[in-house]
């Protein structure tokens, strides 16, 4: 059986939510495997994360190097190549770091790369059977991968339950001396924080959120009218920000804001995982979409199949009549 590893993302001494989700995914592929957590970083915070992971994982490989005081995928790839056994299976979170790191790593290791898996069907010989999605979640696919020479697997954040069993009790092994040369041709300079906007949607109790279904910039106004009538704030999906129709600070999602309203009204939003990744705290979700098969209806509490361009003004009228 292949050696199985999980790459642990962490920030200021706290492991990312994905850390224990990867363990669940790994055990779903290899029910009896000992799974090793790889924790790369620099300084005191690193030990905190290693100790936390040792409770859950069967072993922890710690890599302490100034090059990883910031999570740099280019340097991490070189280090991983030097410490990982050739035919291993490595799991990462399909987020901004994993997207940067994994595809190239699979090439260098000559192993299969399986991106953004949402479920595992099982292993048959050296064929790993998983489920992915395409077209922003509109359809699913069965994917079979030949992992005889190992695999790099990116796991969609938030779909596997975190493994809270704390059944690891693993030893922490310091691999810092084995990583070799990690100099790279891409130099990290700084992180620029996202700008604050005119409203702070992370504090809003009620959000009226608009997506690409609004079709034109001029139509955005009707969303503000509805929000005003409801006493809500306006947020949006990414394409609305890309089109410069609303400011970035109103974007909900993994590359935008994380919101936790009581009520979330999604208008013409398909329900991509990057969008839903920003919606926390189990709000009451209402979705209005003209496509009855839109993935958003799978997560909404209440759904309405309608054209928002007609539905929104009527709803606004009725709410105004309530006074």
């Amino acid at each position: 059986m292949a050696d199985v590893f999980a790459y642990i993302e962490h920030n200021q001494g706290v492991a990312d939510d994905s850390a224990l989700e990867l363990l669940t995914a790994a055990k779903k592929i290899f029910p009896d495997a000992a799974v090793t957590a790889i924790v790369m970083g620099s300084g005191g915070d690193l030990d905190t994360v290693c100790n936390e992971m040792a409770a859950s994982y069967n072993a922890v490989w710690k890599v302490d190097n100034a090059a990883f005081s910031f999570p740099d995928a280019e340097a991490a790839r070189k280090a991983l190549l030097n410490i990982l056994p050739g035919d291993c299976v490595l799991l990462l979170s399909h987020a901004h770091l994993g997207m940067d790191l994994s595809p190239g790593l699979s090439i260098k290791m000559d192993s299969a790369y399986i991106s953004d898996i949402v479920d595992v069907e099982g292993l048959e010989g050296s064929t790993l059977k998983v489920i992915r999605q395409e077209f922003t979640g509109q359809v699913s696919t069965h994917v079979h991968a030949d992992i005889s020479n190992g695999a790099v697997i990116n796991v969609r954040p938030g779909v596997f339950q975190p493994d809270e069993s704390k059944a690891g009790g693993g030893e922490i092994v310091d691999k810092s001396g084995d990583i070799g040369d990690v100099s790279v041709k891409r130099k990290y300079l700084e992180t620029v924080q996202a700008e604050a906007g005119e409203v702070d949607i992370t504090k809003s109790e009620v959000l009226v959120s608009v997506g690409r279904g609004i079709e034109e910039e001029d139509n955005i106004e009707m969303v503000f009218d509805l929000a005003e009538a409801m006493g809500a704030d306006v947020s949006c999906s990414r394409p609305i920000v890309d089109a410069k129709w609303l400011e970035k600070a109103r974007q909900v999602g993994t590359s935008g804001q994380t919101v936790k309203p009581k009520v979330y009204l999604a208008l013409g939003i398909s329900g991509s995982f990057q969008h839903l990744g920003g919606l926390k705290g189990n709000p009451f979700v209402v979705a209005v979409n003209k496509n009855p098969k839109a993935p958003i209806f799978q997560v909404a509490d209440v759904g309405i199949e309608a054209d928002i361009l007609e539905f929104v003004p009527e709803l606004t009228e009725k709410i105004k009549e309530l006074g």
Binding site: T191, Q251, T254, S255, Q257
Partner: peptide, 13 residues
């Protein structure tokens, strides 16, 4: 590079 929360990691490449 756009990262979590709309922050941006700057690099020289």
């Amino acid at each position: 590079r756009e990262v979590e929360g709309g922050n941006q990691d700057m690099y020289e490449i």
